[in-house]
């Protein structure tokens, strides 16, 4: 029972009952592809800030710059 509930809860993030499943289908697909390839997703960041109940600390340019910079620390396998 709790397993099934969780599979929905994760997508919604905690508390607000809205999130990826509330997005239109094309936007959901775009978000999935962005996460899969590790691309920045400012809208998701704004969603997160709304859910967490605090204003965004980064503008879009700063967010993208930080996101790309952090990719430089990652390793690609052989």
């Amino acid at each position: 029972m709790w397993r099934r509930d969780m599979s929905w809860g994760t997508e919604r993030e905690r508390g607000n009952g809205k999130g990826e499943r509330a997005l239109p289908f094309p936007a959901r697909i775009a978000r999935v592809v962005r996460r899969m390839i590790g691309a920045p997703d400012y809208e998701a960041y704004l969603d997160h800030c709304r859910t967490a109940g605090h204003p965004p600390t980064l503008g879009e340019r700063e967010y993208v710059a930080e996101f790309f910079a952090s990719k430089g620390d990652g390793v690609r396998c052989c």
Partner: peptide
């Protein structure tokens, strides 16, 4: 919302496999 992000397991599967 950046590096720590709860992600759907199939999406993360693709992300991990690509890495």
């Amino acid at each position: 919302g950046r590096d720590y992000v709860p992600t759907d397991k199939w999406v993360l599967y693709g992300h991990h496999f690509a890495a």
